[in-house]
Design a protein around this nucleic acid. Sequence first.
DNA 1: GTAGGGTTAG
Length: 638
Amino acid sequence: MKAISKLKWMMPPSLSRHFSHTPIASRNVSNYSLSSLLDDFTRFCYQRDLPRAIRAMDAMQSHGLHADAVTYSELIKCCLSRRAVAEAKLVRNHIFSGGYYPKTFLVNTLLNMYVKFDLLEEAQAMFDQMPERNVVSWTVMISAYCKLKLNNKALEFMILMLRDGVRPNMFTYSSVLRACDSLVNVRQLHCGIIKVGLDSDVFVRSALIDIYAKWGELRCAVSVFNEMVTGDFVVWNSIIGAFAQNNDGDGALNLFKRMKRAGFEANQPTLTSVLRACTGLALLELGTQVHVHVLKYDRDLILNNALLDMYCKCGSLEDAKSLFNRMVERDVISWSTMIAGLAQNGYSREALELFESMKLSGTKPNYITFLGILFACSHAGLLEDGWSHFRSMRNVYGIDPGREHYGCMIDLLGRAGKLGEALRLIEEMECEPDAITWRPLLDACRIHRNMDVAEYAAKQVLNLDPEDAGTYILLSNIYANSQRWEDVAEVRKTMRERGVRKEPGCSWIEVNKQIHAFILGDSSHPQAVQINRQLNLLIYKLREVGYVPDTSFVLRDLEGEQKEDSIRYHSEKLAIAFGLMSLSRGKTIRIRKNLRICGDCHIFAKLTAKVEHCTIVIRDPIRYHHFQDGICSCGDYW
DNA sequence: GTAGGGTTAG
């Protein structure tokens, strides 16, 4: 009897057709109790009643009884959904306690279970012992390695699979695409996909769009998207996310409109991508509009985090703080976003206080949290706090400081004028210093006018990043300051030879949900004449209260020979003038720019805020300046 | 029957 019940499920396919699948009870009435044991087990499995199913399984085991593979797979699903690892192991042992090797499909289910429980080594051991592996077995392993970002391993498995004569299907491709660590890889796989006609599968399509976007090939992503005949909302989300990721906020927003016109409703991932696009463009008005859509998902953590970031990046701290306080659930990302947001907007003390609340709340800070903390310390010149948080990273939280943390500390020491200590810290670093490490030291040298260290630091940056236009200009300015004209000429020659071009200063402002861009001295704006008139008027008014253009900053521009004239038309000044004339009184003027603000524009903005009784927020690539009543939130320290 | 897609902080 025992033997028959075992054979019922473990029989090799070739033999099983010779045996009847008639219930055991009907063959032998005296074994009725065994049959009911099996029935109980089956029922509990399908009812997802894990404790009773396990008890029934124990009882069966003592009689050597086994159920069919589908029932076991139900039980495994139940263990998975309850994250019951110990029970899952009991099930595995029971399944393997028979005389035959279980069916491939059942082992695949077990494999998947190990992977989901992050027991990859055990999964790998089981995979190695499998007498036969089908496309599912291979795909489970490949997608497990993809998820762990062990890309090489995933691609290696793909090759082993092909050598084994198993053909990849759409499941395999949609997983393995993520493992591509070069565009060449993506294209090779794409060829294979087209060859076997799997390019029409929507999963494969969204994976292709995603990976092309990751490698910056938006055009390829768009062609994959355009080939789609039937709509699919995840593919829409992929392409919107692709544009958002590649900093093409306009493209993302246009697609979002098209998606809505095509009759697809925006869900959380869509809205998160759209928010990311608004964040990148600092579109507060549009972002606030998206907030209305988000209300439907007001408990969604990821979406709230994206919204929080949008408010921080748009420099609207009041909205950010009120959202943060309302959030029912907060994770390390919410806290880190809020801390970094406060720090970047000049509220360093508040950022550090929030960090204390975070610790009290029981959320563990991570690598990124500390970047915000150290940024807060460095931008407020809090030397002691900086050191103590920096040391606590390893001592208290077991996080090894990375280059970026060292960069913050070097920034902090450098700004405090401790250039020697900063240099020593670079020498002490365990990781190789890179351009990001040297650049803050270079900035500090400029502030403290230490030409020797500056020259050294600039050369280090250019060794590591020969394309860094800002550093060439800084170096040439340092030489110019010391009247070393031959060296100035040499730097400019190197720049020309290497084809390095200075990015022109550009500022953006949102008026009536339209973005207006201004470039240094640009007169292409339809209202250029009025803007110039407004700007001149403003400068006249500011001179009355003591504004003197600070031409020493002109030295930062290679093209700055015309001195006062060139800074007069810096892009942020044009944007401020335009904001004053087109926004209603009392509305905050929000400007985003691609380069860091110069000292003259900083004074200009402070005085404008005072004279015109308005608030101006300028976001540069690193931080934010809130100008109000003649002062700036950065405390003139940036 | 078992395996696959889109979203958040530097």
